[in-house]
Design a protein around this nucleic acid. Structure first.
Lengths: 205, 205
DNA sequence: TGTACATCAGTGAACGCGCGTTCACTGATGTAC
DNA sequence: TGTACATCAGTGAACGCGCGTTCACTGATGTAC
């Protein structure tokens, strides 16, 4: 019982790592089971087919990431009562977190799936979609609170602004991978932070 | 002679389209030659192997994109002598361009490659790297001109800001693919525009 | 202008390897009485 | 407490299909004399 869960976790762990470097297709089941030290049939005991692995990978990734965001912004709210300040602190914490990852952010499963759409069944695509919409809602709540306290220096749609958080992270990961500069993601988050500061800070400087 | 070039172009055209929806791996040579209406061996007359196709695809994509940026920002400079205004105009033009694409931006080959790293040889990765660094240089030149005329309201690194243009586009494409809302990329570009406006506009109001 | 040869732009058939998937089986652990 | 059976968590071998790649070939176009 506990043994099965451990094996399953091991499969997901090694699969996640491989998928993030090579993409889903290029990661073979043979390779996964070799790293996980089980046989191929052992894999199929845990997952009906390769699509089921994709779904599980995305679902787990989202869960972990949501937990991470929950913790991080809860801590940020502890550090300041002001909604704007706590968003700014949260983004700074996020940038630091990513900066301290040895090889930069390992990558985002959601992005991988987005660029390999046709590989997956509609189930997987739907899971992916919900995840991104979940991020939008999360950040929207935060920006609503900020906008309740501060007028905007440039009127922009708060849903778009909420999307920008995910967008900047995803874009940053791609850039850092493409040029091989792991710091880029953190830098981009700090620029987003700068934008939010300018957008809501009472004029003057 | 002309015939060969046409065939090669046809191969690249159908390959590009397929790669952008499904990823490079999931696009088979069989499928490409079927769409291009030649035989498999015809394909190998034009490309030594599948990697050569990847390289050609990326190189062509970059060339087309550079030309597009050249034209677009040249037009923007025609419309205003002020460096800040012309950047803002250029970004607006870019957002409109992408907005008017029927299904949103078709995607970026560079991003595809970034998430399928191990598939390609170091040649392909290097081409990809140079492309992104080229974008950085391009936008850096523009921001240098702006910074020469206007003080920044928040001191940020201009290389990072230059990267942000590509980053926001790439991130926007991923987001729009993941949730199926093609407008997202254009929206994100307009937010970047808003940031640049706030960053360089003389304080007031 | 005609003939000989070379190159171009492919064709058609075959190959072999790796992949995802299946299936009959098995030893270890859990449960009923 | 021991035995019978069921379920769990896999194993091992095989399969067949699609993939990238090769290779011997060919008809159409270009070039030399």
């Amino acid at each position: 019982m506990a043994r099965a869960r451990e094996t399953r976790k091991k499969i997901l762990d090694v699969a996640e790592e491989a998928v993030l470097v090579k993409g889903f297709d290029a990661t073979s089941i043979d390779e996964i089971v070799a790293s996980a030290e089980i046989t191929k049939s052992g894999f199929f005991y845990h997952f009906r087919d390769k699509n089921a692995l994709a779904r599980a990978l995305i679902e787990r990734h989202i869960e972990v990431e949501n937990q991470l965001f929950d913790d991080l912004f809860a801590r940020a709210r502890d550090l300041s009562d002001d909604p704007l300040q706590s968003v700014l602190i949260g983004l700074k914490l996020l940038a630091e977190l990513i900066e301290n990852m040895p090889d930069g952010h390992p990558g985002c499963i959601v992005a991988t799936a987005a660029y390999q759409d046709r590989l997956f069944d509609s189930d997987v695509r739907e899971v992916n979609r919900r995840a991104v919409l979940g991020w939008r809602r999360r950040f929207r709540t935060m920006f609503d609170a900020v906008a309740g306290c501060y007028p905007m220096n440039d009127p922009v749609d708060l849903d778009h602004l909420s999307d920008m958080v995910s967008s900047v992270i995803e874009g940053g990961i791609i850039m850092s991978r493409a040029v091989g500069e792991p710091q880029i993601t953190a830098q981009q988050i700090m620029l987003l932070r700068s934008y939010i500061k300018l957008l809501f800070s009472p004029a003057v400087q």
